[in-house]
Every structure is written in structure tokens, then in C-alpha cells.
Amino acid sequence: MTLPVFGLDAISQVAKPAVVFDAVRSALIAHAEGRTSVPAPMVLEFPQYAGDTHVKAGHVAGTPYFVVKVASTFGSVNNGLVLAVDATNGQPAAVLADEGKLTAWRTAAAGALITHAMTPVGVDEVAVLGTGEQALLQILWLHELRPLRRVKVWGRRPEAVDRLCTQLQSAGLHATPDGLTGAPCVITTTAAREPLPLDAFREAIHITGIGTDMPGKGELPPALFANAFVATDDHAQCLHHGDLANAVQAGVIGAEDDVAAGVILRDGMPSRAAPPAPAPTPGARPLSTTFPRNHRSIADLTGVGATDAAVAGAILGQLVR
């Protein structure tokens, strides 16, 4: 058997944002409705090389492939690959040698989709905390879904902040190095192991946390979760090693006080002034009964193997047709 291997050039030709958005949205909804198979992720750490590797797997019921994905970050260098396996007979179907880009793109899509869905219409000012590839992608992919008037940037290294501002400005966005001054929408994309400065969130109506993807990390100050409307991409993962877990351990929020992100993508946000109308779908975590207007919303995203499967399947379908 000769196993097809598709490199990044071929993958990039077909991995258009619309394809990735559709795959991630459908996978998160399926996950919320219990139509996925997603084992617990595995993480290997290499502190002597400033590296960590995440191994995730997943399958969306009714789709042709399940996947096993390896995604690594060593310093500022990302890499990885995805093995797609025929879900009807276990036969390896292809390797997507994506150099970690499919992980980056599905993370960007998931963040942009849920940020857009949970942030009130008309909000066009965003603060991004973090200066790496994912910080750039979160803003660019969110801008695909809604116009952004201003982006505020914060990072620990001034040169990295300046670089990201320049990249965003090159994309036609007004970007300034003042991410700690507050914004109605805040996106965090760091590898922080201590909470980020509380001042950065003081004006936040909505917050999306991207970077807390393994035990020991924590971006969002637990106090932010008090009285917040919280959505998670995977309840068990976020309760194990997300910012939700840190808030629960701090006694700020209950272990069951979250809603599946896929429910939000399927049904929309409840009113910020009144209880939501739709009843929950069997298998889905229910929406909160109230969402007071003056309370913020938070999305805690840890990365779900089902989205990797959906994106890989969509890309492979384009490559082999």
C-alpha cells in the first residue's frame, strides 16, 4: 500500500477560510449534540527545548474519516501532521503534512466563529493579548466575519507587539500597541501560566480565551468568571485544563455552569436582557436561563479533535476528488 502524502502547498490551495469555517462550525455543533467521538488529548512537554506536542484524535459521526493529529510548538516554530483513516474499515487513507497549519487555521476559525457569535452586533474594537501566529490569525479570521475598526495589541516583548501591529496594518486594520487599556471584545492567545493583567478586561463585554490548552496554563483571571455567561468547546477538557477549570478550582463558578459552544453556533446567543426561548437538543448542554445585560460572556476554547477531523476530511475531499 502506498499512502498518499499531501504537503502544505497542496493543502493551502484548497484550505480556503470558507471551507475551514464550515467544517469547524459543523463539527462544534455535532460535538454539542453528542455526535462525535473524541478521546482525551495527550500532551508531551520538552521544557529543555521550550517545546510541547499535542496529540488529538476525533471523528464526526457519518463522516468518512477519523484522524489522529500531532501538533508541536518548539519556541516560535510550529509543526505537525494529520493522519486520516477510513472510518469504515480502519485503513489509513492519507497523511496531511500540514506543518501545523491546519491546527492553526481550525483554531483561528473556532475562535472567530464563537467570538463573532457571542460578541454583540456593532462591536468593532478588539484587544488581542499575545503576539504570535494565533494572535494574528484570530484577528484576520474574525475580520472575515465582521468589520473591525480598531485592534489593540498587548504582548510582553515590545518588538513583537510592533511586528504584530505592522502585520495587522498591512492587512488594512488600524492596530495600536495599547492592549491593556481595555476593549469591549478581548481575545487571549498566550502561553501564560499566570493570569493576564486584570486591567486588560475591565471594559470587556465578551472574552475569548485560546491559549490555555494544557494543564498548568492559565490566561484569564478567575474573577472574570463571576456571573459570566460561559461557553466551552469541550466541557470535560475545559474542566480539566481550561480557564474554566482554574475558575472552578478558585470557587468562582460551578463545574456545570457552562454551555457548549456548538449550541451557541446552532441557536445563537440568548438575549442579554431576557431568558432564551429554544429548548435544548437532547445530548446538548442547555443554555443558561438568564443572561443579565450587564454581565460579560466568556468562551473557553481548548481545541477539539472533532474539528481536526472535520477540517482534515473537508480538505482531503477537495484533494482526492
Rank of each mutant, 00 (worst) to 15 (best):
T73K: 12
L142V: 11
A127E: 09
L96D: 01
N79W: 13
G62L: 15
N89D: 14
G75F: 08
A160F: 07
E125S: 11
T131M: 03
T119I: 04
A117E: 02
H174S: 15
V85C: 08
S72E: 11
R149T: 10
T107Q: 02
R149F: 06
H54Y: 05
H174Q: 15
V121F: 14
V68G: 00
V85Y: 00
V126Q: 05
V123K: 04
V77N: 07
Y65F: 13
G51H: 13
A84Q: 01
D124W: 07
L137Y: 10
S72G: 06
V153I: 13
A97M: 10
L83A: 08
W105K: 03
A104F: 04
S170H: 14
I114S: 00
G90Y: 07
V82L: 09
L164K: 05
L148D: 00
A71P: 04
V77I: 14
L129P: 02
D98L: 08
K69E: 03
K56E: 09
D86F: 04
V85F: 03
H143L: 09
L164N: 02
R163D: 15
R150W: 10
V128W: 03
M118R: 03
T119G: 01
N78Q: 14
N79R: 11
I114Q: 05
V82A: 00
T131K: 01
G75R: 10
R150K: 15
L173P: 00
E99A: 14
G58E: 06
V60H: 09
P147S: 04
E144T: 05
A93P: 05
V126L: 10
K56Y: 03
A104S: 13
V95M: 10
V60W: 03
G122A: 07
Q91T: 15
E144H: 08
L129M: 10
N89V: 02
T115V: 07
K69F: 05
V126K: 02
T103E: 01
V151L: 02
T53R: 13
A61R: 14
S170A: 15
T53G: 10
L137G: 05
V95I: 15
